[in-house]
């Protein structure tokens, strides 16, 4: 089973990103997704920076994939999709436009690089997987709300190479509206890049104080950290071939080390959760995997096997 690092969802500065990927180059990760998923207005990295980071990571022995925007609503955003299609890396599609822009069929010119259906493509079931396989898609990252049973069913009946979102604030929604700008009485058009102030997003609490969501520009994530660190054996058994951890501003090396040890069988689930809990400011969740509400947490340390 491979350990992968998802794209950075937050707005970090160019220096921070370059430093981050320099550090990541030294981590024991198999595959790394780079590129911008959330907002076309972020300005930290030029396409040449993304290429340089990808090349640097490849030199460090990593497999590199570039992820597309999740919401593509105008020519400017289509240009971003076209620009990543010029990079020498496979592409993770997070919007259907990618499948129309980049050839997916390996038998035709330009189709050899590989296109992957990312977590924001709604691949819910066997016929959807089979359709995507039919156009040449080799790997699927299933929607985050699918339960263990649903993921297992899809893998069993299609043999698709499957990756799951396994750790981090989990993406819950996208909008045309920038919720961070809204907090400053600004529109997206008049954005003043306030996202930069929230390197792990802006946590929202309910009116009685319970942390529930994280505002991140035009996206909404969970406040708590979704983690399947306790379920690695389980994921392997149902045929999942890769687990994705999502970048966070602090403690990334610790999180990666825990997952590496879990995958290598050197750390048990209870110990892993103990360490990860220390790195999760607003707590843990993973209910979806267990066919419960996503915000719930089911863990081995609570007496229920993950």
């Amino acid at each position: 089973m491979k350990l992968t690092l998802g794209p950075v969802l937050f707005d970090w500065s160019r220096d921070e990103l370059i430093r981050f990927y320099e550090e990541v180059a030294g981590m024991d990760i198999d595959r790394i997704y780079i590129g911008e998923v959330i907002c076309a207005k972020k300005r930290s990295l030029e396409i040449s920076d993304i290429e340089a980071i990808g090349t640097r990571l490849e030199r460090a022995g990593k497999e590199v994939v570039v992820s597309s925007l999740a919401v593509v609503s105008n020519e400017n955003e289509l240009e971003m999709v076209r620009s990543i299609s010029t990079l020498p890396f496979p592409v993770e599609a997070n919007d259907m436009s990618v499948f129309n822009i980049i050839p997916t069929d390996s038998s035709i010119a330009g189709g050899q690089r590989g296109v992957i259906a990312g977590p924001h493509i709604t691949t819910y079931n066997v016929p959807a997987v089979k359709f995507l396989q039919g156009i040449g898609v080799k790997r699927v990252i299933f929607p985050v709300e699918l339960s263990k049973e649903s993921v297992a069913y899809n893998i069993l009946h299609t043999g698709i190479e499957a990756e799951v979102f396994a750790h981090g604030k989990v993406p819950l929604a996208f909008s045309w509206r920038c919720y961070t700008s809204r907090a400053y009485n600004l529109s997206k058009t008049r954005c003043q890049f306030h996202c930069r102030r929230y390197p792990d997003g802006m946590v929202l609490r309910t009116m009685d104080g319970e942390p529930v969501f994280t505002v991140n520009g035009t996206s909404i994530l969970s406040a708590s950290i979704y983690t399947l660190a306790g379920c690695i054996e389980d994921l392997r058994e149902i045929g999942v071939s890769a687990v994705r951890v999502s970048p966070q501003y602090r403690d990334m090396a610790r999180v990666v080390a825990v997952f590496r040890k879990r995958l290598d069988g050197e750390m048990g689930p209870i110990e892993a959760i103990e360490v990860l809990r220390e790195t999760a400011g607003e707590g843990l969740c993973n209910g979806w995997y267990h066919a419960q509400a996503g915000k719930e947490y089911v863990g081995p340390e609570l007496g229920a096997l993950g």
């Binding site: 709300e145 993406p171 929604a173 045309w176 909404i220 979806w288």
Partner: peptide, 18 residues
Amino acid sequence: NIEGRCYLSSFVTGASTN
């Protein structure tokens, strides 16, 4: 939020809107 890709209700209730 964009329909077909919104998991807020599912996150809170466990019932998939989609």
